[in-house]
Write a protein that binds this DNA or RNA. Structure first.
Lengths: 166, 166
DNA sequence: AGATACCCGAGTAATCCGGTCAACTTTACG
DNA sequence: CGTAAAGTTGACCGGATTACTCGGGTATCT
Protein backbone atom coordinates (compact mmCIF):
# COMPACT_ATOMS: atom_id res chain seq x y z
CA UNK A 1 0.00 0.00 0.00
CA UNK A 2 1.49 3.22 -1.12
CA UNK A 3 0.50 6.28 0.85
CA UNK A 4 1.17 9.13 -1.50
CA UNK A 5 -0.46 12.51 -1.39
CA UNK A 6 -2.43 11.38 -4.40
CA UNK A 7 -4.15 8.92 -2.09
CA UNK A 8 -4.68 11.64 0.48
CA UNK A 9 -6.25 13.93 -2.07
CA UNK A 10 -8.50 11.12 -3.20
CA UNK A 11 -9.71 10.58 0.34
CA UNK A 12 -10.32 14.31 0.73
CA UNK A 13 -12.33 14.37 -2.46
CA UNK A 14 -14.33 11.34 -1.45
CA UNK A 15 -15.02 12.87 1.93
CA UNK A 16 -16.24 15.96 0.17
CA UNK A 17 -18.44 13.85 -2.05
CA UNK A 18 -19.84 12.07 0.97
CA UNK A 19 -20.70 15.28 2.78
CA UNK A 20 -22.53 16.65 -0.26
CA UNK A 21 -24.37 13.44 -0.96
CA UNK A 22 -27.93 14.49 -1.70
CA UNK A 23 -28.92 11.98 -4.33
CA UNK A 24 -27.98 14.27 -7.18
CA UNK A 25 -24.62 13.94 -8.89
CA UNK A 26 -21.84 16.18 -7.67
CA UNK A 27 -19.67 17.94 -10.23
CA UNK A 28 -15.93 17.63 -10.09
CA UNK A 29 -15.81 21.35 -10.52
CA UNK A 30 -17.64 21.78 -7.22
CA UNK A 31 -15.23 19.48 -5.45
CA UNK A 32 -12.30 21.23 -7.08
CA UNK A 33 -13.52 24.59 -5.80
CA UNK A 34 -14.24 23.41 -2.27
CA UNK A 35 -11.10 21.35 -1.79
CA UNK A 36 -8.87 23.66 -3.78
CA UNK A 37 -7.68 20.95 -6.09
CA UNK A 38 -7.31 21.25 -9.84
CA UNK A 39 -10.13 19.94 -11.96
CA UNK A 40 -7.75 18.07 -14.26
CA UNK A 41 -6.17 16.29 -11.37
CA UNK A 42 -9.51 15.30 -9.94
CA UNK A 43 -10.51 13.87 -13.29
CA UNK A 44 -7.48 11.66 -13.17
CA UNK A 45 -8.32 10.58 -9.63
CA UNK A 46 -11.98 9.91 -10.26
CA UNK A 47 -11.18 7.91 -13.34
CA UNK A 48 -9.47 5.43 -11.09
CA UNK A 49 -12.14 5.60 -8.43
CA UNK A 50 -14.80 4.86 -11.00
CA UNK A 51 -12.88 1.92 -12.43
CA UNK A 52 -12.47 0.71 -8.88
CA UNK A 53 -16.23 0.71 -8.45
CA UNK A 54 -16.22 3.29 -5.69
CA UNK A 55 -18.20 5.95 -7.53
CA UNK A 56 -20.70 6.06 -10.34
CA UNK A 57 -20.57 8.72 -12.99
CA UNK A 58 -23.44 10.46 -14.73
CA UNK A 59 -22.57 12.08 -18.00
CA UNK A 60 -23.99 15.08 -19.69
CA UNK A 61 -25.43 18.27 -18.24
CA UNK A 62 -26.55 17.84 -14.67
CA UNK A 63 -24.13 14.95 -14.41
CA UNK A 64 -21.33 14.34 -12.00
CA UNK A 65 -20.33 11.67 -9.55
CA UNK A 66 -22.16 9.66 -6.94
CA UNK A 67 -20.95 7.34 -4.23
CA UNK A 68 -21.40 3.78 -5.49
CA UNK A 69 -21.89 2.54 -1.95
CA UNK A 70 -22.98 4.41 1.13
CA UNK A 71 -20.35 6.35 3.01
CA UNK A 72 -20.62 3.86 5.85
CA UNK A 73 -19.75 1.04 3.48
CA UNK A 74 -16.82 2.73 1.80
CA UNK A 75 -13.57 1.98 3.54
CA UNK A 76 -10.55 4.26 3.36
CA UNK A 77 -8.40 1.33 2.31
CA UNK A 78 -10.59 0.89 -0.76
CA UNK A 79 -9.89 4.44 -1.81
CA UNK A 80 -6.16 4.17 -1.32
CA UNK A 81 -5.95 0.89 -3.20
CA UNK A 82 -8.02 2.30 -6.06
CA UNK A 83 -5.82 5.31 -6.76
CA UNK A 84 -2.36 4.02 -5.89
CA UNK A 85 -1.54 0.89 -7.79
CA UNK A 86 0.45 -1.52 -5.63
CA UNK A 87 4.04 -0.85 -6.69
CA UNK A 88 7.15 -2.46 -7.98
CA UNK A 89 9.25 -4.04 -5.30
CA UNK A 90 12.59 -2.60 -4.36
CA UNK A 91 14.68 -5.23 -2.69
CA UNK A 92 12.65 -6.61 0.16
CA UNK A 93 9.00 -5.77 -0.01
CA UNK A 94 5.85 -7.66 0.81
CA UNK A 95 4.44 -9.36 -2.21
CA UNK A 96 7.81 -10.02 -3.76
CA UNK A 97 9.67 -12.59 -1.71
CA UNK A 98 12.04 -13.07 -4.63
CA UNK A 99 13.53 -9.67 -3.93
CA UNK A 100 14.60 -11.04 -0.57
CA UNK A 101 17.85 -12.50 -1.61
CA UNK A 102 20.97 -12.94 0.44
CA UNK A 103 20.69 -16.61 -0.46
CA UNK A 104 17.44 -18.48 -0.44
CA UNK A 105 15.93 -17.67 2.90
CA UNK A 106 13.74 -14.63 3.29
CA UNK A 107 15.62 -11.64 4.55
CA UNK A 108 15.30 -10.92 8.24
CA UNK A 109 13.24 -7.82 7.85
CA UNK A 110 10.74 -9.29 5.42
CA UNK A 111 8.23 -10.28 8.08
CA UNK A 112 8.54 -6.89 9.70
CA UNK A 113 7.46 -4.95 6.62
CA UNK A 114 4.83 -7.48 5.78
CA UNK A 115 3.32 -7.15 9.21
CA UNK A 116 3.51 -3.38 9.10
CA UNK A 117 1.69 -3.37 5.78
CA UNK A 118 -0.92 -5.54 7.38
CA UNK A 119 -1.32 -3.20 10.31
CA UNK A 120 -1.78 -0.22 8.07
CA UNK A 121 -4.28 -2.02 5.93
CA UNK A 122 -6.21 -3.16 8.96
CA UNK A 123 -6.36 0.36 10.31
CA UNK A 124 -7.44 1.93 7.06
CA UNK A 125 -10.05 -0.73 6.47
CA UNK A 126 -11.45 -0.18 9.93
CA UNK A 127 -12.29 3.40 9.07
CA UNK A 128 -15.12 4.32 6.73
CA UNK A 129 -15.79 7.50 4.85
CA UNK A 130 -18.64 8.08 7.23
CA UNK A 131 -16.27 7.92 10.21
CA UNK A 132 -14.15 10.60 8.58
CA UNK A 133 -16.93 13.05 7.83
CA UNK A 134 -18.39 12.50 11.29
CA UNK A 135 -14.91 13.13 12.76
CA UNK A 136 -15.14 9.80 14.47
CA UNK A 137 -11.55 8.78 13.87
CA UNK A 138 -9.33 9.72 16.77
CA UNK A 139 -9.21 7.09 19.46
CA UNK A 140 -12.20 5.31 18.03
CA UNK A 141 -10.12 2.77 16.26
CA UNK A 142 -8.24 0.01 17.94
CA UNK A 143 -4.87 0.66 19.41
CA UNK A 144 -1.79 -1.44 19.37
CA UNK A 145 -1.88 -3.56 22.47
CA UNK A 146 1.76 -4.35 23.04
CA UNK A 147 3.55 -1.57 24.90
CA UNK A 148 7.00 -0.35 23.88
CA UNK A 149 9.53 -2.77 25.36
CA UNK A 150 11.94 -0.33 26.92
CA UNK A 151 11.69 3.39 27.19
CA UNK A 152 15.02 4.93 26.34
CA UNK A 153 14.32 8.62 26.43
CA UNK A 154 11.38 10.93 26.18
CA UNK A 155 7.77 9.89 26.25
CA UNK A 156 5.94 8.10 23.52
CA UNK A 157 2.38 9.14 24.15
CA UNK A 158 1.66 11.30 21.15
CA UNK A 159 3.77 11.34 18.06
CA UNK A 160 1.65 13.28 15.68
CA UNK A 161 4.71 14.75 14.05
CA UNK A 162 4.77 11.78 11.81
CA UNK A 163 3.94 11.41 8.23
CA UNK A 164 4.18 8.99 5.43
CA UNK A 165 5.80 10.01 2.32
CA UNK A 166 6.03 13.66 1.46
CA UNK B 1 7.44 9.18 9.74
CA UNK B 2 8.76 8.61 6.32
CA UNK B 3 9.17 5.02 5.28
CA UNK B 4 11.66 5.17 2.45
CA UNK B 5 13.84 2.37 1.25
CA UNK B 6 16.68 4.19 2.94
CA UNK B 7 14.97 3.41 6.21
CA UNK B 8 14.46 -0.18 5.20
CA UNK B 9 18.12 -0.57 4.31
CA UNK B 10 19.06 0.94 7.63
CA UNK B 11 16.93 -1.59 9.47
CA UNK B 12 18.45 -4.40 7.43
CA UNK B 13 21.93 -3.20 8.26
CA UNK B 14 21.10 -2.86 11.93
CA UNK B 15 19.63 -6.34 11.96
CA UNK B 16 22.82 -7.62 10.40
CA UNK B 17 24.83 -5.79 13.01
CA UNK B 18 22.70 -7.28 15.74
CA UNK B 19 23.13 -10.83 14.49
CA UNK B 20 26.90 -10.46 14.34
CA UNK B 21 27.18 -8.83 17.69
CA UNK B 22 30.11 -10.50 19.38
CA UNK B 23 31.60 -7.62 21.33
CA UNK B 24 34.04 -6.79 18.58
CA UNK B 25 33.30 -4.01 16.11
CA UNK B 26 31.76 -5.00 12.79
CA UNK B 27 33.08 -3.29 9.69
CA UNK B 28 30.78 -1.71 7.18
CA UNK B 29 32.51 -3.70 4.51
CA UNK B 30 31.28 -6.92 6.08
CA UNK B 31 27.73 -5.62 6.27
CA UNK B 32 27.98 -4.36 2.71
CA UNK B 33 29.05 -7.79 1.50
CA UNK B 34 26.41 -9.69 3.42
CA UNK B 35 23.51 -7.37 2.67
CA UNK B 36 24.67 -6.50 -0.84
CA UNK B 37 24.63 -2.78 -0.22
CA UNK B 38 27.29 -0.35 -1.31
CA UNK B 39 29.88 0.67 1.22
CA UNK B 40 29.47 4.36 0.44
CA UNK B 41 25.77 4.20 1.03
CA UNK B 42 26.22 2.39 4.31
CA UNK B 43 28.68 5.01 5.46
CA UNK B 44 26.05 7.63 4.87
CA UNK B 45 23.46 5.63 6.75
CA UNK B 46 25.68 4.85 9.71
CA UNK B 47 26.70 8.45 9.98
CA UNK B 48 23.11 9.23 10.86
CA UNK B 49 22.73 6.21 13.07
CA UNK B 50 25.80 7.21 15.01
CA UNK B 51 24.62 10.80 15.39
CA UNK B 52 21.31 9.37 16.55
CA UNK B 53 23.08 7.50 19.30
CA UNK B 54 22.09 4.07 18.03
CA UNK B 55 25.58 2.82 17.29
CA UNK B 56 29.09 3.51 18.48
CA UNK B 57 32.02 3.64 16.13
CA UNK B 58 35.58 2.51 16.59
CA UNK B 59 38.11 3.99 14.24
CA UNK B 60 41.30 2.62 12.88
CA UNK B 61 42.28 -0.92 12.05
CA UNK B 62 40.11 -3.45 13.81
CA UNK B 63 37.47 -0.82 14.09
CA UNK B 64 33.89 -0.80 12.98
CA UNK B 65 30.50 -0.32 14.53
CA UNK B 66 28.83 -1.58 17.68
CA UNK B 67 25.26 -1.40 18.86
CA UNK B 68 25.04 1.43 21.40
CA UNK B 69 22.23 -0.34 23.22
CA UNK B 70 21.33 -4.01 23.28
CA UNK B 71 19.24 -5.31 20.42
CA UNK B 72 16.34 -5.76 22.81
CA UNK B 73 16.47 -2.09 23.69
CA UNK B 74 16.71 -0.77 20.15
CA UNK B 75 13.33 -0.08 18.65
CA UNK B 76 12.70 -0.07 14.92
CA UNK B 77 11.10 3.33 15.20
CA UNK B 78 14.38 4.71 16.55
CA UNK B 79 16.18 3.53 13.46
CA UNK B 80 13.64 4.97 11.07
CA UNK B 81 13.59 8.30 12.85
CA UNK B 82 17.37 8.49 12.91
CA UNK B 83 17.74 7.91 9.21
CA UNK B 84 14.74 9.70 7.70
CA UNK B 85 14.40 13.24 8.89
CA UNK B 86 10.76 14.12 9.52
CA UNK B 87 9.65 15.94 6.36
CA UNK B 88 8.15 19.08 5.01
CA UNK B 89 4.37 19.10 5.08
CA UNK B 90 2.36 19.02 1.88
CA UNK B 91 -1.15 20.27 2.35
CA UNK B 92 -2.66 18.31 5.20
CA UNK B 93 -0.12 16.42 7.19
CA UNK B 94 0.31 15.67 10.85
CA UNK B 95 2.49 18.24 12.50
CA UNK B 96 1.39 21.06 10.27
CA UNK B 97 -2.21 22.01 11.03
CA UNK B 98 -1.69 25.24 9.13
CA UNK B 99 -1.60 23.31 5.89
CA UNK B 100 -5.18 22.28 6.60
CA UNK B 101 -6.86 25.18 5.04
CA UNK B 102 -10.28 25.32 3.43
CA UNK B 103 -11.02 28.08 5.94
CA UNK B 104 -9.92 27.89 9.52
CA UNK B 105 -11.14 24.50 10.66
CA UNK B 106 -8.91 21.51 10.25
CA UNK B 107 -9.65 19.58 7.10
CA UNK B 108 -11.78 16.52 7.48
CA UNK B 109 -9.04 14.05 6.83
CA UNK B 110 -6.52 15.59 9.19
CA UNK B 111 -7.38 13.39 12.12
CA UNK B 112 -7.30 10.33 9.94
CA UNK B 113 -3.70 10.78 8.83
CA UNK B 114 -2.64 11.87 12.27
CA UNK B 115 -4.07 8.73 13.77
CA UNK B 116 -2.55 6.57 11.07
CA UNK B 117 0.87 8.06 11.74
CA UNK B 118 0.34 7.27 15.36
CA UNK B 119 -0.58 3.67 14.61
CA UNK B 120 2.52 3.18 12.52
CA UNK B 121 4.74 4.71 15.11
CA UNK B 122 3.20 2.58 17.83
CA UNK B 123 3.73 -0.54 15.82
CA UNK B 124 7.33 0.21 14.93
CA UNK B 125 8.14 1.17 18.48
CA UNK B 126 6.64 -2.07 19.75
CA UNK B 127 9.16 -4.07 17.76
CA UNK B 128 12.81 -4.29 18.74
CA UNK B 129 15.81 -5.30 16.73
CA UNK B 130 15.91 -8.45 18.80
CA UNK B 131 12.36 -9.31 17.75
CA UNK B 132 13.42 -9.01 14.14
CA UNK B 133 16.51 -11.19 14.33
CA UNK B 134 14.60 -13.78 16.37
CA UNK B 135 11.85 -13.67 13.72
CA UNK B 136 9.40 -12.85 16.46
CA UNK B 137 7.41 -10.30 14.51
CA UNK B 138 4.45 -11.88 12.83
CA UNK B 139 1.35 -11.90 14.99
CA UNK B 140 3.32 -11.05 18.07
CA UNK B 141 2.41 -7.43 18.01
CA UNK B 142 -0.96 -6.03 18.88
CA UNK B 143 -3.69 -6.04 16.33
CA UNK B 144 -6.26 -3.45 15.50
CA UNK B 145 -9.31 -4.26 17.55
CA UNK B 146 -12.09 -2.71 15.50
CA UNK B 147 -13.23 -5.00 12.71
CA UNK B 148 -13.94 -3.81 9.19
CA UNK B 149 -17.42 -2.32 9.17
CA UNK B 150 -18.85 -3.93 6.11
CA UNK B 151 -17.41 -6.51 3.83
CA UNK B 152 -18.07 -5.60 0.25
CA UNK B 153 -16.28 -8.25 -1.71
CA UNK B 154 -13.48 -10.70 -1.16
CA UNK B 155 -11.89 -11.50 2.14
CA UNK B 156 -9.62 -9.30 4.13
CA UNK B 157 -7.65 -11.84 6.14
CA UNK B 158 -4.18 -11.38 4.73
CA UNK B 159 -3.09 -8.42 2.71
CA UNK B 160 0.62 -8.86 2.57
CA UNK B 161 0.72 -7.45 -0.92
CA UNK B 162 1.04 -4.06 0.58
CA UNK B 163 3.93 -1.76 0.80
CA UNK B 164 4.76 1.72 1.80
CA UNK B 165 6.40 3.95 -0.59
CA UNK B 166 8.07 2.40 -3.53
C1' DA C 1 54.91 4.85 8.18
C1' DG C 2 51.44 2.72 6.41
C1' DA C 3 47.33 0.26 6.44
C1' DT C 4 42.72 0.07 7.94
C1' DA C 5 38.50 1.86 8.65
C1' DC C 6 35.52 5.56 9.92
C1' DC C 7 34.06 10.46 8.44
C1' DC C 8 31.98 13.92 5.55
C1' DG C 9 30.24 16.86 2.09
C1' DA C 10 29.52 17.67 -2.63
C1' DG C 11 27.77 15.73 -6.76
C1' DT C 12 24.77 13.02 -9.94
C1' DA C 13 21.63 10.09 -12.39
C1' DA C 14 17.31 8.53 -12.22
C1' DT C 15 12.83 8.31 -10.72
C1' DC C 16 8.56 9.95 -9.23
C1' DC C 17 4.82 12.74 -8.68
C1' DG C 18 1.67 16.34 -8.75
C1' DG C 19 -0.32 18.62 -12.21
C1' DT C 20 -1.50 20.20 -17.19
C1' DC C 21 -3.38 19.91 -21.81
C1' DA C 22 -5.86 18.74 -25.75
C1' DA C 23 -8.95 16.08 -28.00
C1' DC C 24 -12.92 12.91 -27.82
C1' DT C 25 -17.49 10.93 -26.34
C1' DT C 26 -21.74 10.88 -24.35
C1' DT C 27 -25.91 13.06 -22.93
C1' DA C 28 -29.41 16.80 -22.00
C1' DC C 29 -32.13 20.23 -23.75
C1' DG C 30 -34.11 23.53 -26.83
C1' DC D 1 -30.68 18.41 -35.11
C1' DG D 2 -27.34 21.33 -32.90
C1' DT D 3 -25.04 22.94 -29.21
C1' DA D 4 -23.27 22.97 -24.79
C1' DA D 5 -22.34 20.53 -20.50
C1' DA D 6 -20.01 17.19 -18.55
C1' DG D 7 -17.27 13.06 -18.23
C1' DT D 8 -13.05 10.22 -20.46
C1' DT D 9 -8.71 9.39 -22.18
C1' DG D 10 -4.00 9.51 -22.61
C1' DA D 11 0.08 11.81 -23.53
C1' DC D 12 3.10 15.04 -21.59
C1' DC D 13 6.03 18.20 -18.45
C1' DG D 14 9.11 20.15 -15.01
C1' DG D 15 10.48 20.31 -10.51
C1' DA D 16 11.55 17.85 -6.47
C1' DT D 17 13.32 14.02 -4.15
C1' DT D 18 15.80 9.81 -3.81
C1' DA D 19 19.09 6.65 -3.95
C1' DC D 20 23.60 6.27 -4.53
C1' DT D 21 28.71 7.59 -5.74
C1' DC D 22 33.08 9.86 -5.33
C1' DG D 23 37.00 11.90 -3.48
C1' DG D 24 39.26 13.40 -0.07
C1' DG D 25 39.89 13.66 4.90
C1' DT D 26 41.02 11.89 9.97
C1' DA D 27 41.79 8.77 13.68
C1' DT D 28 44.13 4.68 15.23
C1' DC D 29 46.46 0.41 15.31
C1' DT D 30 50.73 -2.36 14.20
Amino acid sequence: MKLSSKARYAVMAMADLATHDSGRPVTLQDIADRQELSLSYLEQLFGRLRRGGLVNSVRGPGGGYLLARSSGETRISDIVLAVDEPLRATRCMPGSPQGCRTDKKRCLTHDLWAELGNQIYLFLSSVTLDDVVARRVLGSSGLISAPPPAESAGSVEDRSDLALRH
